[in-house]
Amino acid sequence: MTELPTSTAKKLGLVIDLDTCVGCHACVISCKGWNTENYGAPLSDQNAYSGAASGTFLNRVHSYEVQPPMLRDAPQPAQLIHFPKSCLHCEDAPCVTVCPTGASYKRVEDGIVLVNEQDCIGCGLCAWACPYGARELDAKEGVMKKCTLCVDRIYNENLPEEDRQPACVRTCPAGARHFGDLADETSDVSILVAERGGFDLMPEQGTKPTNKYLPPRPKDAEPEYDILAPYLEPIANDSQGFVSWLDKALSALPGGAK
């Protein structure tokens, strides 16, 4: 089973907008909540109420500071970018091929990478093979946990149609997470990726991630004042002049002249 399908009918995945993510961790917790109650074993927490609490999460939000280079000899302000990360459901998923038991597999129909917890021996090798840190071994259950792309939601006939999407996408307040079929060039997600220049994480690792990231839009690119200056052309240089301008301006208003 750990052979990768040569192709999958669909490539379901997420598109994450780094321009919009405010770093609220909502996706992190709704993922934890859904996946604790659903697919496989609950995501456990160790030292839940003491010193160094440490639990299993399938989705985590990092943040990075990026320092742009000097622009025309002027230092640019550093930027801060929130960065959610879960399994990218790679096409060439190394985590699958290394798995000795066949517990890890990539679904033929939609490309979702899953762990069959009944078969997993908890060797951890798949986590070693994943460049993205998308797999975590649950300390209580001893099996590998990873993002399921909410496979138990997206086709779930017990859910209303509009809710058949991943928990993290449904909950994201900023709308920074998008779900869809990236194999379909006409899908909303594919269009977003094309329009916004969606990119792969660590392309050099050759994993061909399905999930894509949309880059932050250029920042601190405020229009130059010189171009805008006409907008602030003073109407008068003294308060006397201001009043006469005011009279003129008022008479031009819909209320008519005085």
Binding site: T36, D45, Q46, Y49, S50, A139, K140
Partner: peptide, 9 residues
């Protein structure tokens, strides 16, 4: 005090 570990399902 709270329990050490939890696995809430």
């Amino acid at each position: 005090k709270g329990p050490k570990d939890i696995a809430w399902k």
